[in-house]
Amino acid sequence: MNEAVQSALRLQTRQDFLGAAEVYHRVLEADPKNKQAWYGIGLIDQGYGRTAEARKDFDKALEADPRFTSALYSESFMLRSSDPDRAIELLGRAATIQPKAASVQLQLGQLLAEQNRDDEAERAFRRAVAADDRLLPQVPEDFRDAVRP
């Protein structure tokens, strides 16, 4: 990660979102395919409720790196209620890339369960608990017996 992006991240951490956005935009002027800058701007847009812009930003990050799991996860979270099928597809990609990412598996399981795709949900919950058994209490009760370690 380059120094300018690190600077923008520090500004973002201090909640100087305008300053961070300025730095990210400068990074993108020099490197229009910088996934970290697109992702950072997406988080800022999301924080301000600009969901359409945030989705475009996350999509730009994913154009630069289709395996960028942070962007996959963030965009899927935004789409959870408005486009659950797309959210499942994005989380599925993230889960394939990082199969031991317990939180991704848990979120995927929850989305699948909400869509009554119980067999797939059970598999995702099983992978989540296998990666981190402390997540068992977060698994919906209907699935707990099936996924106990």
Rank of each mutant, 00 (worst) to 15 (best):
A4C: 02
A71T: 12
K35R: 15
L91T: 06
A21F: 05
L11N: 13
M1D: 04
S7C: 00
I88T: 10
G92M: 08
D57K: 08
N2W: 04
P32Q: 03
S76F: 03
G47M: 09
Y24H: 10
F17H: 06
E3W: 02
A64T: 08
R10W: 03
G42R: 07
E75Y: 00
S70L: 10
I44Q: 02
G19N: 09
L72E: 01
R55Y: 00
S7P: 00
A71S: 11
Q105A: 13
T69S: 10
R26E: 15
Y73N: 12
T69P: 05
E22F: 05
K33G: 06
A64I: 11
P32T: 10
T51G: 10
V23N: 03
L62P: 12
S70Q: 13
R10C: 00
I97G: 01
L28S: 14
E75F: 00
F77T: 13
N34Y: 08
E75G: 06
E89N: 12
D16R: 13
S7G: 09
T51E: 13
D16W: 06
E22W: 02
G19H: 11
A102K: 06
K60R: 14
Q12P: 01
A101I: 01
L91D: 09
A8M: 05
S82Y: 03
P99R: 10
Y39I: 02
V23G: 05
R93K: 15
I41T: 04
R86K: 15
R86I: 09
Y73E: 04
E75A: 11
A21T: 05
K33C: 00
